[in-house]
């Protein structure tokens, strides 16, 4: 039963991703999980298990990126969030904290507020796609937790992000 639900969800996510973000298929983890979800080598809890947080993180995509000093979702970002919404609706045991982040080009307080805007942009979009607001919290880290540490745009682009971090998942 569980597997069937997950598989349906997966097809929906796949359809969305196929329309808007073909690059996602370059992700080897995603590719492995997506091409044959009924394969017998699905390891529960691993990225090959569509109900797993690892799958959410790698195949669905746990983050959306933003332009400099902006909190407007890009088409790619909306596609990722569409996938997140489908996943969250199919995996009702999970709640999520959406973390908003900024790159280092800004003052500390402003970046906290900017991170809040970004987290809220992702949260509002998920709510608009039917995810109950009660399952979503937001937190801003401002520029405190970059994932890339160089001081140029290649790193900054990855740091300006909203990351959906799962919690819960009792039956996972």
């Amino acid at each position: 039963m569980k597997l069937k639900t997950s598989a349906l969800m997966l097809c929906a996510a796949l359809a969305v991703a196929a329309c808007t973000n073909p690059n996602r298929f370059d992700n080897p983890a995603g590719g492995a999980g997506v091409t044959d979800p009924f394969a017998s080598d699905v390891v529960p809890g691993s990225a090959s298990d569509p109900a797993s947080p690892a799958y959410f993180q790698q195949a669905v995509g746990d983050r959306v990126l933003f332009a400099v000093d902006q909190s407007t979702l890009t088409p790619e970002g909306r596609a990722t969030l569409d996938g997140q919404a489908v996943w969250l609706l199919s995996n009702g045991d999970y709640t999520a904290v959406i973390e908003g982040h900024a790159d280092e080009q800004g003052t500390r307080e402003y970046n906290l507020a900017l991170g809040a805007r970004r987290a809220d942009a992702a949260r509002s979009y998920l709510v608009s796609q039917g995810v109950p607001a009660s399952r979503l919290q937001v937190v801003s880290y401002g520029k405190e937790r970059p994932i890339e540490v160089c001081s140029d745009e290649t790193c900054y682009a990855k740091n300006r992000r909203a990351v959906t971090v799962l919690a819960g998942g009792l039956t996972g």
Binding site: S71, E109, L112, A113, A116, D120, A121, S124, S140
Partner: peptide, 9 residues
């Protein structure tokens, strides 16, 4: 102090 609620601070 500042309070962020939703997208607003």
């Amino acid at each position: 102090y500042s309070v962020s609620q939703g997208s607003n601070t």
